[in-house]
């Protein structure tokens, strides 16, 4: 279970997060939405150790995450993707996945050549549908395929908690659809938190939604509850017509 209490983050006097409380029980698929600058990505950065909170506590599966390094948090079972997908272009798809699957092995055991494909990697390949591209270098993948590879790498890590930052940004409609199905399937046996802007995607795939606004949790509930809430309409949905909510820069 992921539990954030009164988390505050200040950048040069700007309160990016201003006392966020968030609880995500095991096995839940949680969507995190909010207008630009609401603090969604900052929240993920805090959980994964990229940003240190000025105050508050972050606990996951009984561990206090405060002060832990990024790779140590990953080793506790927290994985994430980034808005701009980062895969290793000089390595093949398989090598990228194999790398992601290998961090629990002791470093010296990596000095051996990879033989074949491990079960974990094969499963990640199958789930993301990248089998045909397995031996291609990641540099030649399309934008959508890269995002899938990143999700695949995340799966290969075998994390307990997955944090996905705008996984469908920049994808075509078909790709969004596939990604949505992928996420739903992943959520069957993982705890997943998804930051997403795309309202249509949200309606189709989300169950529980947390709305952030100006560094605070505004509302939390089902998609219907949230979209019916007048405060949400005011800060987010209501503005959509006049000020189309684009992707965060």
């Amino acid at each position: 279970m992921l539990e954030l209490r009164d988390v505050q983050v200040v950048f040069d006097g700007f309160r990016a997060l201003d006392g966020v409380d968030l609880t995500v029980p095991d096995g839940e698929l949680r969507f995190l939405i909010g207008p630009n600058g609401a603090g969604k990505t900052t929240l993920i950065d805090v959980i994964t150790g990229l940003t240190r909170p000025a105050a508050g506590s972050v606990r996951f599966a009984g561990h206090d995450l405060a002060g832990r390094k990024e790779h140590q948090i990953v080793r506790l079972g927290v994985g994430r993707t980034f808005q701009t997908s980062v895969v290793f272009e000089e390595l093949t798809v398989i090598e990228n996945l194999d790398l992601a699957a290998g961090f629990r092995k002791p470093l010296w055991s990596l000095a051996r050549r990879r033989r074949g494909v491990s079960e974990t990697v094969a499963e990640a390949l199958a789930r993301t549908g990248l089998e045909e591209l397995a031996e291609r270098s990641a540099g030649v993948l399309s934008h959508g395929q890269r995002q899938w590879l990143e999700i695949g790498m995340l799966l290969a890590q075998r994390p307990k908690l997955l944090l996905l930052d705008e996984p469908v940004a920049g994808m075509s409609k078909d790709e969004r659809e596939r990604t949505g199905e992928l996420l739903t399937r992943i959520a069957d046996d993982h705890t997943v938190v998804v930051v997403e802007h795309d309202m249509e995607f949200l309606r189709r795939h989300a169950s529980t939604v947390t709305v952030l606004h100006e560094g605070r949790v505004l509302v939390e509930g089902s998609v219907d509850q949230v979209s019916a809430d007048p405060r949400v309409q005011e800060v987010y949905l209501g503005r959509k017509a006049s000020d189309a909510v684009g992707n965060r820069p």
Partner: peptide, 28 residues
């Protein structure tokens, strides 16, 4: 050459090309 062709070698290239990303793969 053996080291470069091993998993460690792949990891090393990954560190070269994206040190920050490697942290989120659980490596130091």
């Amino acid at each position: 050459r053996q080291l470069v062709n091993s998993r460690y070698g792949r990891l090393l290239v990954a560190v070269r090309d994206g040190e920050d990303r490697v942290r989120f793969l659980g490596y130091d």
